[in-house]
Simulated scan of single mutants.
Amino acid sequence: MEAEDLQEELTCPICLDFFNDPVSIECGHNFCRRCLRRSWTPADGLFLCPECRQPSSPAALRPNWALARLTEKARRRQQGPVPPGLCGRHWEPLRLFCEDDQRPVCLVCRESQEHQDHAMAPVDEAFESYREKLLMTQCSLTAKMKKAMHLQDMEVKNATEWKDKMKNQKLRFSAEFTKLHDFLAEEEQLFLQKLSKEEEETKKKRTENTLQLHQIITSLKKLILEVEEKSQSSILELLQNPKDLLTRSENQDVNYSLEVLEVKTLCHIPLMKEMLKRFEVAISAAEDTGHPHLVFSQEGRV
Score class of each variant (00 low, 15 high):
9 E>W: 00
11 T>Y: 06
11 T>G: 10
13 P>D: 13
13 P>Y: 06
15 C>E: 05
17 D>T: 07
18 F>Q: 03
21 D>P: 00
24 S>K: 11
27 C>P: 14
28 G>R: 10
31 F>I: 11
35 C>T: 01
37 R>V: 03
43 A>F: 06
45 G>W: 00
51 E>A: 12
54 Q>P: 08
54 Q>Y: 07
57 S>C: 12
60 A>R: 04
60 A>I: 14
67 L>Q: 00
68 A>K: 09
73 K>I: 15
75 R>F: 04
79 Q>E: 13
86 L>T: 12
86 L>A: 10
87 C>E: 03
89 R>G: 06
91 W>P: 11
94 L>R: 01
96 L>Y: 14
97 F>G: 00
102 Q>A: 13
108 V>E: 01
111 E>P: 03
111 E>C: 14
112 S>C: 10
114 E>Q: 13
115 H>C: 04
116 Q>H: 11
124 D>M: 02
126 A>V: 09
128 E>T: 11
130 Y>M: 08
131 R>Y: 03
132 E>L: 12
134 L>S: 02
143 A>Q: 12
145 M>F: 06
148 A>W: 05
151 L>S: 03
151 L>D: 05
153 D>Q: 15
154 M>N: 09
156 V>Y: 08
159 A>Q: 11
167 K>T: 09
169 Q>V: 10
169 Q>G: 14
179 K>L: 12
179 K>C: 14
180 L>F: 04
180 L>G: 01
183 F>N: 06
186 E>P: 05
186 E>I: 09
193 Q>C: 08
195 L>H: 02
195 L>T: 05
197 K>N: 05
198 E>Y: 04
201 E>P: 05
202 T>V: 11
204 K>V: 03
209 N>W: 13
213 L>Y: 08
214 H>K: 15
215 Q>G: 04
217 I>Y: 01
218 T>V: 06
220 L>W: 00
220 L>T: 04
221 K>I: 05
223 L>R: 00
225 L>D: 13
229 E>G: 02
231 S>M: 06
231 S>W: 00
232 Q>T: 08
233 S>V: 09
234 S>N: 14
238 L>M: 07
241 N>K: 14
243 K>L: 08
246 L>Q: 07
246 L>C: 03
249 S>T: 03
251 N>Q: 08
256 Y>W: 14
258 L>I: 09
263 V>E: 02
263 V>I: 15
264 K>D: 07
264 K>L: 08
265 T>R: 02
266 L>V: 15
267 C>E: 04
272 M>I: 12
272 M>C: 09
276 L>M: 09
280 E>S: 14
280 E>I: 09
283 I>Y: 07
283 I>D: 02
284 S>Y: 07
284 S>P: 00
292 P>D: 07
296 F>Q: 02
297 S>W: 09
297 S>T: 14
299 E>G: 07
300 G>S: 11
302 V>N: 07
